[in-house]
């Protein structure tokens, strides 16, 4: 297989998971480089999972300073003011993550993610944007797509007790086990830009309402120049106005996006830790799949809502119109 054998130490540490995905997948994992930005609760869970899984390196980007709120669902930050004072979230989380698995290189990259050049992303195999703005998600996704090597691109967002994951693996080949045979499969992923601008009308009615609701919130935050989660019940009229416009533009009725759901998403600004654990777990599983090339990946959205307990995969691309 590609590259050298796993060391004795690695085999002992990763024994139980090698029994799940095999030694080749583990070797690929140990050589993968992951960039992560926006380290709130769900992303903290994700980072813990991939560090434990034994990826090669994790690069953290989050220059925000630690606040009371960031302590809420992020167990990577010790609640000791003396320890976190003057440090960024990324720096503090880096210290905690290193401790989880000494074999993984964890480091911090300062600065604004969206200002980075295309070349910057070439160093990575996986890019994960947590809680990003619409503009950042679009821009970074485009840069990743320009590279000659395939960079797996993910976004993740949690509000109230709901979560969304977006996946772009471009043209992706993988092996699937069908009965005893291994089958080669190929999937074509739309870009983020394409996936969020699919006309709503042809999308099947049973599609998760969260897909539409998240688009409304995204536009709201973009228009108003808000940071992620910077909203309250006072913003509901504006949000409903945006919803109305989007529904009209897509020629669907306003009941397409329930008001109650939008209200939940803008008022539930404190993260719900069990939902973070669930969405962060699913995201890590997907990244592990993409890096190891084993198993059918999620295409291309995932939604979790603690209220109904479902975790659903939605394939949203222009295929509806064609």
């Amino acid at each position: 297989m590609d590259g050298e054998e796993l060391t004795e130490q690695e085999t002992a540490l990763y024994d139980r998971q090698i029994r799940v995905w095999g030694a080749n997948a583990q070797r690929r994992l140990t050589k993968s480089h992951i960039l992560v930005s926006g380290i709130k609760g769900t992303v903290a869970e994700f980072c813990k999972n991939i560090v434990l899984a034994g990826v090669g390196s994790v690069t953290l980007m989050d220059d925000s300073l630690v606040t009371e709120e960031s302590l809420n669902a992020n167990f990577l930050i010790p609640p000791d003011e003396n320890a976190y004072k003057g440090k960024t979230v990324a720096e503090i989380c880096c210290d905690s993550l290193k401790d989880f698995n000494p074999m993984v290189l964890v480091s911090v990259e300062k600065g604004d993610l969206s200002a980075r050049s295309t070349e910057f992303f070439e160093k990575f195999d996986v890019v994960v944007i947590g809680y990003g703005s619409l503009a950042t998600k679009k821009a970074v996704n485009e840069k990743c797509r320009k590279l000659s090597k395939r960079v797996a691109f993910y976004t993740v967002d949690c509000r109230d007790s709901c979560g969304e994951i977006f996946v772009d693996l471009q043209d992706y080949k993988y092996t699937k086990k069908k009965l005893e045979e291994k089958v080669e499969c190929e999937l074509n992923f739309p870009s983020f830009q394409e996936a969020v601008s699919v006309p709503w009308k042809p999308i099947p009615r049973r599609t998760a309402k969260l897909y539409f609701a998240m688009r409304v919130i995204e536009v709201f935050e973009e228009n108003e120049g808000r940071k992620h989660g910077e909203c309250s019940l006072l913003d509901l009229p504006t949000v409903l106005e945006i919803k109305k416009k989007l529904c009209e533009a897509n020629s669907v009725s306003e009941s397409h996006v329930p008001d109650s759901l939008l209200e939940r998403l803008i008022t539930g600004t404190i993260e719900f830790p069990p939902a973070c654990a669930i969405v962060g777990g699913i995201l890590a599983q997907e990244v592990i799949k993409a890096v190891s090339g084993k198993g059918e990946p999620l295409k291309n959205f995932f939604y979790y809502d603690a209220q109904d307990g479902k975790g659903v995969m939605e394939d949203i691309s222009n295929s509806f119109t064609s």
């Binding site: 139980r16 799940v20 813990k48 434990l52 899984a53 939902a275 654990a277 669930i278 890590a284």
Partner: peptide
Amino acid sequence: IVHAVATTNAIVAG
């Protein structure tokens, strides 16, 4: 020996 990964345990705990 049981086959075990961190992610499933995290999801189940949630």
